[in-house]
Amino acid sequence: MKKICLLILSTCILLSCDSDDNTNREPGSLELRFENKIGSENLILGTPFTNSSNEQYVVNELKYIISNITLTRKDGSQFIYPVADSYAVVNEEESSSKMITLTNIDAGTYDRITFGFGVDPTKYPIESGTLNFVPTAEEAGMLWSWSAGYKFIKMEGTYTPENGTESNDFVIHVGSHGANLDNYKEIELAIGEDIKINSATASSKIISFDVSQVFNGANTIRLEDKADIQVDPINAPKIAQNIQAAFSIN
């Protein structure tokens, strides 16, 4: 049934877009590579870094959920990637998970990409196609068992407070729970140089996630104040806001 929907949908879309000036109108693909960074360096699991509160931290695990990918052309028209196929868990430990290949994208020249951090809880779970994402999220440990919700980011490791000598564990699980605590964020990135997509061109873009901004963004998160941030109506939204600004594209 979905296949039929998709077929009809893509046919409609194919027939309706004719404003681009490319000669090749066959749908193409785009490869998105996610790179997790600390500032300009690559994040290395198990290696210490320092945050702006002079805390030394080591990330041992980093996973996050990406969803709802949309590409926008200069004229504002959009290609919405099939929502149910847009959910992915980016896992630092697994290089294949850091490469998301979008296929069957309408031909065109795009200058902006939009995606979600987490799972949009406002959408009915059937409509948003998340119910088929459940096993993937579960296998990655991104599901709470006591709550029918997702961990949008799972970041765990150890830290040593400023002037401290002993290292302690930190746990950051930010998600949304029930209908009240919504930490889903939409991220829009302008693509510096436009991407042309059609069947003849293999396009690829790197999206960087600056992990240091989890702690040092619009909000400062000091692990010594709170090192276990899970169902936390105060700190979790701050982290989500920091994360929203931590992505860039090149």
């Binding site: 779970p125 119910l131 459940v134 006591w146 709550s147 029918a148 919700g149 729970h177 029930g178 209908a179």
Partner: peptide, 21 residues
């Protein structure tokens, strides 16, 4: 909302809780 504490907002996702708990 479902469960005594509303841990599931949608009926379609509610069974995740008892199955995995």
């Amino acid at each position: 909302d479902f469960n005594w504490d509303g841990a599931a907002s949608f009926l379609d996702a509610q069974p995740i809780i008892p199955i995995t708990a």
